[in-house]
Amino acid sequence: MSPSSAVAEPVAPAARPGRYPLALFRSELQLVFGRARTWVLLAVLAGVPLLIGIAIKLSGSEGGGEGFIGQVAGNGLFLIVASLGLSLPFFLPTAVTVIAGESLAGESSLGTLRNLLTAPAGRSRLLAAKMVALIVFCLAATLTIWLSGLIVGFALFPVGDVLLLSGTTIPLGEGLLRALGIAVVIALSLLGLAGIGLFVSSLTSTPLAAMAATFGTFIVLGILTAIPQIDVIHPWLLMFRWTSFADLLRDPPYWGAIGKNLLLQAGYLTVFYAAAWARITSRDIV
């Protein structure tokens, strides 16, 4: 067609098959779990039970000591609980911060956000897909520790019926289920932080800045939690009831603190998800 020849007839709209709104969510999971970085993070988390297990084995401890760690040598199942508990203050928040910080800022810095929005992904749906992928990552992170703790604990230590904090004993199978419950509760405990990370990530085009800011916020909240003079605000701080997961090892489980913790996480998540939504739906994407 030469530049000046008569223009052609416009195309008739092509027939469209049904709608596939979930494809983006699947693609989002592929993006998170298809990256080497994610697997490195999970590998580090899987290394936590291994490190603790080997240290305890080498120390020659025989069990019956203080806390979950003290009980590992007596019953390998406690390696799962101890590893989850020890990963909660630092390793798990770091991993969540990395993935959350990358989520929107990463797309923005690569320029792929433009392609997604003109696809069109829809800004609200894209944000929802990012959040779902984050939740799945939180679960994957704690379940990785659960699985690694299970393998290492059973390989290095004797296992058997589980003596609970309340003094009763439950069979090993139920003990494993309770440990799985702890993994899930801890994953849910990370959602407030994930929400903060998602929001911060919507503010910038630099993933590293988003990660740093999110982690900085986490540390400030941690410091505030440690200052006794301001204990009036403590119940409202992100990680105040993080240790409530141990209540799952009572008989019957004590749900009060766990419930309050999950409610607080839901509150943080709602506020910051809404803020991220307000930001992403109004922002100029350049």
């Binding site: 596939y20 983006l24 693609s27 298809g34 392609n115 696809a119 829809g122 894209l126």
Partner: peptide, 24 residues
């Protein structure tokens, strides 16, 4: 603008998946 750590084909699939009218 693409995901550098993915193949050209994987990039195409990702952007197509973002369009909810596109047949998987």
């Amino acid at each position: 603008a693409f995901y550098p750590f993915w193949s050209g084909q994987a990039n195409l699939l990702r952007f197509d998946a973002a369009d909810s009218t596109a047949d998987p």
